[in-house]
Amino acid sequence: MSKISKVLVIGSGPIIIGQAAEFDYAGTQACKSLREEGITTVLVNSNPATIMTDEGIADIVYIEPLTADVIARIIKQERPDGLLPTLGGQTGLNLAVELADAGILDKYGVNLLGTPLETIKKAEERSLFKQLILDIGEPVPKSATVHSIKEAKELAESIGLPLIVRPSYTLGGTGGGIAHTMEELEYTVASGLSSSLSHEVLVEKCLLGWKEIEYEVMRDAADNCITVCNMENIDPMGVHTGDSIVVAPSQTLTDKEYQMLRSAS
């Protein structure tokens, strides 16, 4: 990769579940670091009420809607040689996938910086993620990706209710939900299919009432990794992440459980 001299950063947009205020913080720090390295920093963000859009954080700021069309136009205008999409939360990641798939990045010779496209897809697309987890030998709840209400009902008959419905490409879970009955399943799958970018939803065994544990791991291309922390949601599974309090570190795991999950992460 040749030396990068100009980078487009996708900002965090409105503060919602899946892209909360921490992305403004992360994006601001990224802009500062890039400028420290002498790189011209172009920022696009639809939300002007953020720190990152303040004067002096980025070199050039676009307050524009965060859509693939708009970003393509900015790329055409600014001709950055790098795109940093990993600091804008869900929207940024989705846009990177869209821009890459549409051939915009190749057309203008823009390098995707940070997390590779493959990895974004693996994290975002539920079926790819599930396969990855199975490949490394970790258990997953019984589930299947379905494209219609009929497929979802067939699945419910084989693995039983309650089921949880998750549309692809929404980390925060917009359009998903829990189905305790066949009627609820029908409704939730219909809503999920319509809000999914790829018109597919993952239907899986519902883990209502389980403990919810998260790990933050940073890993580089040379496979050096550190576990920054783990977290435990005070509410059990079933209470939405956006409505719940999470504490770091976990409070009710023994060291054996903590380390087992850490090793898996």
């Binding site: 576990t227 060291d255 054996k256 380390q259 087992m260 850490r262 090793s263």
Partner: peptide, 8 residues
């Protein structure tokens, strides 16, 4: 052997 601690 960790215990407590990482199994790395």
């Amino acid at each position: 052997e960790g215990s407590p601690g990482p199994q790395d």
